[in-house]
């Protein structure tokens, strides 16, 4: 099998007060193991919905999602998710947040503390282990959420605009960190973003979606060798193409 995740004719409709909203239409997608896939598209095109269905938090109206040969039928810790909004447990310290999945799994205190500390270092937050989420900045919170998602060692990492709420500098740093983590841990990453720049910098392949109902209108291999330069000619060219795709298709 040469794909990790396969979406086959996935459609999603929401029933809300008489009207039916078609959020996603006919999504077909194959993701290779260890691939870094970015999904871009206008607001409301169903990116979050797509990730939620892969995570097992929601179900397709039709079609199927197949992971490692099995149909996805509910959430499981082998798919980590970083939510678009802040999602740390406010009553737990940073380390305890990172430990959460391991604790649920029944791992011993000492063992899980060690792992948590490892991932804390991974995201560069040594020294903040005993802070509470309210003591952290937005970017730090997202880093903790990433560490928490990584701690259970999921095969797939689903990230929904994880850097949406941080400033440009921090964002660049976090992108570097994420690439580093991805290289080290060999995960498959599905990364949703609004930013074409971010997609071109991070992804092996970029999926472009159209406005509602969300459809895949293009898949673009990036193919620039890493480490990439944000301002290189090739990057600019690809960016321009992607922006054009987005611009022409989502304006009616």
């Amino acid at each position: 099998m040469n794909h990790k995740l396969k979406l086959h004719n996935v459609t999603k409709e929401f029933q809300s007060e008489e009207v039916e909203i078609k959020a996603l239409e006919d999504i077909n997608l194959e993701v290779k193991p260890n691939e870094f896939l970015c999904i871009i598209g206008p607001s409301g095109c169903g990116k979050t919905t797509l990730l939620r269905m892969i995570a097992g938090l929601d179900y397709p109206s039709s079609g199927e999602i197949i992971l490692d040969g099995d149909r996805v039928s509910g959430p499981s810790p082998d798919r980590g998710m970083v939510f678009q909004e802040f999602s740390l447990f406010p009553w737990r310290t940073v380390l305890k947040n990172i430990e959460f999945g391991l604790q649920i799994r029944g791992m011993k205190d000492k063992e899980r503390r060690e792992i948590a500390e490892k991932y804390l270092e991974f995201v560069g937050l040594q020294g903040f282990g005993n802070s509470y989420p309210y003591e952290l900045s937005g970017g730090m919170k997202q880093r903790v959420a990433i560490a928490r998602a990584l701690a259970t060692d999921p095969a797939i990492l689903l990230m929904d605009e994880p850097f949406g709420s941080v400033d440009a500098q921090t964002r660049n740093v976090l992108q570097e960190e994420l690439l580093e983590i991805w290289k080290r841990t060999k995960k498959t990453i599905l990364f949703v973003t609004h930013s074409v720049d971010e997609a071109v910098y991070l992804a092996d392949r970029v999926v472009v979606m159209s406005a509602r109902p969300g459809r895949i209108i293009a898949c673009r291999d990036i193919g620039i060798p890493r480490p990439r330069k944000r301002t290189s000619m090739e990057a600019n060219e690809i960016r321009e193409q992607l922006l054009m795709l987005l611009g022409s298709k989502h304006q009616k």
Binding site: A55, G80, S87, G101
Partner: peptide, 13 residues
């Protein structure tokens, strides 16, 4: 809801 779902994806089901 997001905290419940965070629990879900971390195996708290």
């Amino acid at each position: 809801k997001v905290l419940v779902e965070t629990g879900n994806v971390l195996g708290c089901i």
